[in-house]
């Protein structure tokens, strides 16, 4: 009996797997197995919130740029900045035009996003971050209009965005995307004598870019490379200790500090910015450690305790500060 049941299950799986759904096998109006329920119109309507580039899914409604500005200041500016410039790690919403080929491209709604529908859809389903799906349809139209206005995609501050005129909006980067044609990068998978050891260079967070002299020497392949090898003077115990601390500091910096100190956001003194660091270094390392470990509110910004990462030890925070100072004076 058990075997017979098993075979039947396998047979029906095979039928579905190989031949697709067969009408002849349909035993219920909810499918072959039929364990689900027919979805009600109410369910379908409640789940139907997505909005497409062709305007499909947009509900009836409208909102003006000026109403959007009011809403934006109340609900969005805290994170995204008064002009959409982004605060902390929150995304920048506006600007960045013609920067996509720059050394530091700025991907914003205006410079990067290909469709306005994405903006409407995302605001409506996921924003504000602390109260998603709390915005009405009209509020969503208004906020979408205002963010487009911040990006100069809408010029007129009296503009009213609605279901009827929505698809007329054209985003500057609408032709900026194409389907990834990967695989795109080849590797011939060489096994022997793949590189001239003298030409191998190594980028290190600690030493910068250096030729790979040690290996050149090992291989005995290039006398010139080994002859101008690094100064091999032995280091003092103190120097070794400092080197080790810098190494730890570099790791912690990358992991936890570079988010703010790398770009100088939220008033953080920027890594390598001697002008910004000089007055702070003057206060003494002890004071800097104290502020970083316990947190600090100053005129230019806020340093959260341990950069907002309480899992760091005091020693790790101090090491990161040492690393930043070493590279900013």
């Amino acid at each position: 009996m058990f075997n017979w049941d098993n075979k039947n299950v396998i047979k029906s799986l095979l039928l579905i797997g190989l031949f697709g759904f067969s009408q002849a096998g349909l035993t219920k109006d909810t499918g072959y197995y039929g364990y689900g329920k027919s979805a009600t119109q109410e369910e379908i309507a409640a789940w139907d919130i997505d909005v497409r580039p062709d305007g499909k899914g947009l509900p009836v409604g409208s909102g003006s740029v000026s109403y959007g500005e009011e809403l934006y200041e109340a609900k969005c500016a805290l994170c995204h900045g008064a002009f959409g410039e982004g605060e902390g790690r929150w995304p920048k919403l506006a600007g960045g035009f013609d920067t996509l080929t720059d050394a530091k491209p700025e991907k914003t709604v205006g410079s990067y996003w290909p469709y306005a529908s994405t903006l409407w859809d995302y605001i409506h389903r996921a924003m504000p971050f602390t109260a998603p799906q709390s915005l009405s349809v009209d509020e969503t139209y208004a906020l979408t209009a205002y963010v487009l206005y911040l990006n100069d995609i809408i010029d007129d501050e009296d503009f009213v965005l609605s279901k009827d005129n929505f698809t007329e909006i054209e985003m500057p980067n609408k032709d900026g995307f194409f389907v990834d044609p990967r695989p795109d990068v080849k590797n011939p998978a060489c096994m022997e004598n793949c590189k001239d050891p003298a030409t191998i260079k190594v980028t290190s967070a600690i030493k910068g870019i250096t030729p790979l002299q040690h290996i050149a020497k090992e291989e005995g392949a290039n006398d010139k490379a080994s002859s101008d090898s690094e100064d091999q003077q032995p280091k003092s115990a103190d120097q070794v200790a400092v080197d080790n601390e810098l190494k730890v500091g570099s790791a912690i910096y990358s992991q936890s500090c570079s988010i703010c100190h790398g770009s100088g956001i939220a008033g953080a003194p920027k890594f390598g910015d001697k002008m910004a660091w000089a007055p702070r270094i003057k206060q003494g390392v002890e004071q800097l450690n104290k502020h970083a470990i316990e947190g600090y509110s100053g005129k230019t910004g806020i340093m959260p305790a341990k950069g907002g990462n309480p899992s760091l030890t005091d020693a790790e925070v101090s090491a990161a500060i040492l690393y930043m100072i070493e590279n900013s004076q």
């Binding site: 689900g36 027919s38 979805a39 379908i44």
Partner: peptide, 12 residues
């Protein structure tokens, strides 16, 4: 919910 371009929208 499985819906859209299906013969029978279903909920599970």
């Amino acid at each position: 919910l499985i819906d859209g371009l299906v013969d029978r929208p279903l909920s599970f």
